[in-house]
Design a protein around this nucleic acid. Sequence first.
DNA 1: ATTGATTCCGTGTGCGCACACGGAACCTGT
DNA 2: ACAGGTTCCGTGTGCGCACACGGAATCAAT
Lengths: 361, 361
Amino acid sequence: MVLQVHHRIVTHRIRIKDIALQAGVSTGTVDRVLHNRGEVSQATRDKILSLIQESDYTPNLAAKSLANRNPYRIAVLIPEGDVTNPYWKMPLRGIRRAAREIRDYNTGIEIYRFDMDSRSSFQTRLTEVLKSNPAGVVLAPVFQDQAAEFLKQLNDKGIPCVLIDSRLRKSNYLSAFGQDALKSGFLAARLMCFGIRPGSSILLLKLARPDGIIHHLSRRAKGFSGYIGKCTPSKDISIRTLTIDLTAPGEPAASLDKAMAEQPDIAGIFVTSSRASVVAEYMESRNKSEIILIGYDLTEANRKYLKNGTIDFLISQKPDDQGYNSIMTLCRYLVFKLLPVRIQYSPIDIITKENIDFYQT
Amino acid sequence: MVLQVHHRIVTHRIRIKDIALQAGVSTGTVDRVLHNRGEVSQATRDKILSLIQESDYTPNLAAKSLANRNPYRIAVLIPEGDVTNPYWKMPLRGIRRAAREIRDYNTGIEIYRFDMDSRSSFQTRLTEVLKSNPAGVVLAPVFQDQAAEFLKQLNDKGIPCVLIDSRLRKSNYLSAFGQDALKSGFLAARLMCFGIRPGSSILLLKLARPDGIIHHLSRRAKGFSGYIGKCTPSKDISIRTLTIDLTAPGEPAASLDKAMAEQPDIAGIFVTSSRASVVAEYMESRNKSEIILIGYDLTEANRKYLKNGTIDFLISQKPDDQGYNSIMTLCRYLVFKLLPVRIQYSPIDIITKENIDFYQT
DNA sequence: ATTGATTCCGTGTGCGCACACGGAACCTGT
DNA sequence: ACAGGTTCCGTGTGCGCACACGGAATCAAT
C-alpha cells in the first residue's frame, strides 16, 4: 500500500497475512494460490487472486529467501586463462563477486574449469556437470557442437542455462551474454578516422601466439577494417594488418621497426587484444607518441600508458560484469522466478585519460 | 565455511548458532557480543570474538533485515525540475528505482521537493525534515550556507546525511555524490580538438533562460575553454562563446545564422546543456552536418540526432544513478552498517552511434 | 445408511537474526 | 549471615514466507 501524502512516499508492506485476513482464509491458503500448490477451490482461488491484484502485494524477498529450504547449486563451466590470453580471468572475477552476493539467497556455485584448446577436456566437464544435477548452469560454449548437444540434455532435465561469451543462435537457453566484437572494432575505426589526416596509413595489430587467434579478436579486426573500407573511401586511408608473435625474441620491436621503415606515414595503430601497452612501450622508446594508439581493456599496464597519453583510447567491455551478470541473472530466475532478457550485450565504453578515474568498474 | 574441493566452491553458511555451539553459550550471548549490547563477561566475549574471526562468519542479510523491527525512514530533499532545466527529473528517477529495491530492507523514503530558485522554500523543507526526525537524509545542497547549518543540526541529532550533486567541502556528511563538470568539459574539448583541423574555430553554446545558468553548466564551459587554452596552443584554435535564450522567438536559428556568417570557419560546436538536439536540428536545416557537434545526456531527441550522425558525441554522466546510488549508500549504512566511500563522482561516459545500443543505463 | 476416497483448508514448524524479559549467580554493605 | 543490587546469561517471541501434516467436510459407491 503506497500512501502519497503531500511530498511523501511512505511504505507499508502488504503481506500474505493481510490478504488472508481480507479473504477470510489462512495464510497457508494464500500461499497455495500464489504458488499453484496443493488444492484450493476455484471460488477461494478467484477471490484471493483478485485481492492480490488490487492490493499491490509483492513478496518480501528477504523472507522468501530465508524460507527457501533447498540450497541452489549453480554449475559454472568456463575456460582457464593463460599467460598470452588472460581474458577469462576477468569474467571469473565477476563470477566470484556474484557468488559472494548470492550467499544470502541460499545459492552457491561450483566452478568447472576446462582447457580451451581441448575438446576432450570440455566434454569431461560437461559430463561431470550433467551427473551433478545442478539447479542451473552458466556455460562458456567454446566448442559449439558439444555445447548445443549439452543444452539439449539440460533442457530434457529442466535445468536452465545461461550462456556467457556466446555465439550460439538457435538453442534452448535462458539468456545469453555476449559482446559485439564487430561493432567494437567499428567504433575503434571511427575514433581513429576522426583523428587522422586523409591519406594516412593505419596499422592493425594482432598480437598473439602463432597457433591461435581468439575469435572475438578476429571480429574486432573485421569490424575495424569494415569501417575503413565502407565509411571513409573519400579519406584515402590505407590499412596494413600485422600479426606479431609476442613470444618470439625481439618482438614486437623488430616487426614494428620494419613496418615503420616501410611505411613512414603510419598515423595510427589499432591493437585488437589487451596488449596495447606493449606497443605503447615501443612507441615511447622510438619517440613516436604522436601516433594515435587504440586498444582494449583496463589492465594495469594499459592504464599507465593511457594516463601518460601514449595510448589515446582504450575500449572497455567490462568482461568482469559479463561473469557477474550471468550468475545474477540465473540466481534471480532460480530464486525469484524473474524472467531475463534473452540476449544481453556487453557495453562498448570509450576510456580516455580524462574519464578513467570516474569509470565504474 | 568454504570448502574448496577440486574445482568447486560449495558454501555452508556459518550461523550464530554454530558459533554458540562451539563457544558453549546461547545464540543470545553471541548476538550480544556481535552488537555490543547488554553485558557479557570479558572471558566469554574474547572466546566468541575469536571464534567469529576464525570462522568466516558473515551475517545472513535476509534474516538480518527481516528481524529488524523498526522501519527506516529516509528523507529526500531535492529540487523540482522545470521545462528549461529538467535535470532533476533524472536523479529522481533513480531515487524511485532505489525506493522499490529497499522495501525488502524495511526502509522507506519521503520526498520533499523545493523550488530551486527560492531560499525560503528550501528553508521550509529543511525545517519539516528536522521535525520529522528521519533515520537518514539525502540532500541536494543547492543553497550552501543553509545546507551547512542543516548538516550541523543533523549531526547533533546523530542523523546521517548523504549529499547529491554536492560542492560542499568541509562538512559532516556520510558520503557525497557529485560530478566533475570541469573534467567533463575538458574531455569534450579533447574530443573536439582530436577531430578538427588546426586554425579552425569552435562555438561554445550556452542555451538557457536569461536569468540563470546552472552552476555545473558553467563549470563544463570552463573546463572546455581551459583545455583549448592550455593544451592546444600550437593548433591555433579560436573559441567563441555564445549564450542563446531559447524562449525568445526565432532562436536558436537567428543567433546561429549570425555567428556562422561572421565566422565561416567554425568546425565544431559544444553545447553545455542537454539541448544539443536543438542545435542539431538547426544544422540539418542549414546543411551543416559536417560540423562536429558535442553535447550531454541521452534524451530522446539527442539520441535521434546521434543515431543519424548529426551529433558526433554525447557525454553521459548517468544522473539517474546519482539518485539511485545516494539512496542505496544510505540504506546500506543504516541497515547493514556498511561505511561508504566519502566522495563518489559520476562517470563521464562517451556515447557514439556505434556504442549507444550497448550502453547500460 | 455406511464406508472409503478425495478435496479443501487450518495449523504448526522452521529459516537466521534481533532483542526483551527474568532467573540464577555473584558481589557488596550492614 | 542476610539482604539488596548488579552482572551474566538462557529462553522465548517475532519478522514474512514455504510447506508438510492431518482433521473436517464432501462426494461417490455399495
